[in-house]
Design a binder for these strands. Structure first.
Lengths: 121, 121
DNA sequence: CCGAATCCGCGCGGATACTG
DNA sequence: CAGTATCCGCGCGGATTCGG
């Protein structure tokens, strides 16, 4: 339910740029989407370890929003200990070109820092 | 554009996605960049009229940040009344693929909204 | 016409503690 | 392991006023 997961935009030309940014512009959403795009499926703590700076609260929060937007699918396995897997939905996968564009630009223009963070695009 | 005016990121893989988002993820930066990309050159109030919801303060602010990042060039004409033009720098133009990817996705998946932004993949 | 300065509410997001 | 709950600082960003 909760159709129209996205904020309702009174879109004039170019506003969809903003609308898209609103979806993936959360503080951690970009990386999360990127990681899920690369890894296909990840557990909560796997994701957490990949984002050393993120807090549990934020990870949950961002994942919930992505889920609410229909971009991420959450699968709970009724086991002990609990096991929850996250992956991109089909809808989420349509973002691939966007994420890759973001990544490509960043690698080229910002990524020159540190010790070259994996250029394996 | 040899310099890297951006914050130094301790980038691990995929972090450049976040870094890029940090540059264009400001509340209005996406639209501003898009508009400048389309129009080539725009005066302050032209830009303002295109973004009916934006406040003067925010427009100035976002433009200053974009300028500080080296993405936007600001030209002041010493006239009366004042005249200031904004355009993308060469560096800013390299963002074109990113902006277009954002726009394309938004048009395809959000632009049709009104009632149903459903994934319907 | 193009800003700078000020005031201020609000919510993002961090830290910490608790739970099934 | 995978969350939820609570507290709270801080800065984003809106509204308004003043200036060159």
């Amino acid at each position: 339910m909760a159709r129209t997961p996205h904020a309702r935009f009174d879109c004039t030309a170019g506003c969809t740029v903003e609308a898209t940014l609103e979806l993936i512009g959360g503080k951690w959403k970009g990386v999360i989407l990127y990681r899920l795009l690369e890894a296909d499926v990840l557990r909560f703590n796997e994701l957490r370890r990949m984002l050393p700076r993120i807090t549990q609260r934020m990870l949950t929060n961002q994942l919930r929003e992505l889920e609410g937007a229909g971009l991420v699918a959450r699968t709970v396995y009724p086991e002990v200990p609990p096991r929850v897997e996250y992956r991109l939905s089909d809808y989420g996968r349509t973002l691939a070109p966007v994420i890759r564009a973001l990544k490509a630009w960043g690698d080229q223009h910002i990524g020159r820092t540190a010790a070259g963070a994996d250029q394996a695009a």
